[in-house]
Design a binder for these strands. Structure first.
Ligand SMILES: [Mn+2]
Ligand SMILES: [Mn+2]
Ligand SMILES: [Zn+2]
Ligand SMILES: [Zn+2]
Lengths: 155, 155
DNA sequence: TTGACAAATAAGTATTAATCCTATTTAATA
DNA sequence: TATTAAATAGGATTAATACTTATTTGTCAA
C-alpha cells in the first residue's frame, strides 16, 4: 500500500465512524477502488476489479456499499442514459462530458460555470442540491473513428 | 381527435416519409402519446397509457419505436440516474431539474444559459452535440413533505 | 481479552428493464 | 390487387438491481 492509499483509508475510517458504519475489509476495498479510479465505474466494474484480490466479495455487497457511500455523501452517483448506474469518486464541483459512442464520462472544470445564475422561478420553487453542466457528443478518440455520426442510443 | 393532435400527426407523416419509415398505427399512437405528454415518460409508461385504446400493442414495439424516433432525432432521450430510460418530446434547447424523491424531471428555460461559453480544451478536443444544465434536488411538493432530506438514490 | 449483539456479508432468488428471436401481419408501391 | 420488405406481437433471454436469509464479523462494554 502506498502513501496515497494510506491517506485515503485513514480518511475513510474517520468517515465511517462519524456515520456509525462498521469498518469492514469489503468497504475498505470498495472505497479504495473507487477513490483511486480516474473513471466513473459501475458497480459491476468495481466488483470485477476487486475479485482478483478478494475472491469472495459479492456483487451485491459492492453495489450496496456504493449506495451506502452515496447516501452518506462521500461519493456521488452520476447521471447516465439508462445504462448501468455509475459512481463518481470526485465530489468537487465539476461538469461532465458523455461520449455517446464509448460511454466514457469525462470530467471538466470551469470557474466561470460555477457562477451560473439560475432563474428565480427555479431557486424559489425547488430545493437545489446539485448543479452541473452535461455535455454529450463524441470524444477525441471516437470522433476520429466515425465523424458526423448521429446519436445512437443503443451504442 | 382535436386540432392540436391533427397538426402533430400531419407533421409526423411528413417526418416518417422523409426518413423512409412506414406509417403504422402503433407509431402514430406512440408519437402522439409522447408529443402530447407534459412529462418525460418511460417506454413502460407510454405503453401502459396506450394499452387502454390499443390492447394489442406490445411493450417491445413501444420501446423500439421510441428508439427509432430518437435515432431520426424527432424526440430525445434524457439523462437519468440508472432508472428506466426516459424520453423527451421537447426538442427545443432547455434544461432539466430532477426531483430525487418523486423522480419527476422538470423543464426550465433560461436565455442566459444558452450563452454559456465552454472551455476551449473541451470544444477543441471533443465533438459536442448537446449541452444542458442538470439540476438535482427536491421539487416543491417533495420539499414540503421531507425538508432537508439527504439524497437517497434508491428512492 | 472475551462475550454479546447488532450490523454486514455471501449466495441464492426475485424483479425489472431492455433486447432478441421469429412467425405472422401489414404498409407501400406498381 | 399482388408483391415484397418492413414492422409487429409475443415469448424467450439477458443484464442490472434488489430482496431474503443463514452465517459471519466488527464493535463495545464487561
Ligand atoms: Mn465526475
Ligand atoms: Mn425536457
Ligand atoms: Zn468515446
Ligand atoms: Zn418531487
Amino acid at each position: 500500500m502506498n502513501d496515497k492509499q494510506e491517506i485515503i483509508l485513514d480518511r475513510f475510517t474517520q468517515l465511517c465512524k462519524a456515520h456509525g458504519l462498521k469498518i469492514t475489509p469489503q468497504r475498505m476495498a470498495v472505497y479504495n477502488a473507487l477513490k483511486t479510479s480516474k473513471e466513473h465505474p459501475s458497480a459491476d466494474k468495481i466488483h470485477k476489479q476487486l475479485v482478483c484480490d478478494f475472491p469472495s466479495i459479492s456483487l451485491d455487497t459492492v453495489n450496496r456499499t456504493l449506495i451506502t457511500f452515496a447516501r452518506i455523501q462521500i461519493i456521488d452517483v452520476v447521471e447516465g442514459q439508462g445504462e448501468p448506474r455509475r459512481f463518481d469518486p470526485n465530489r468537487e464541483d465539476h461538469h461532465h462530458f458523455y461520449c455517446l459512442s464509448c460511454n466514457k464520462i469525462i470530467d471538466f472544470h470551469d470557474p466561470d460555470l460555477g457562477q451560473i445564475q439560475l432563474p428565480k422561478e427555479i431557486t424559489c420553487t425547488f430545493t437545489i442540491t446539485g448543479k452541473r453542466l452535461c455535455l454529450t457528443g463524441y470524444c477525441d478518440h471516437c470522433s476520429h473513428q466515425a465523424p458526423a455520426r448521429a446519436a445512437d442510443i443503443t451504442k
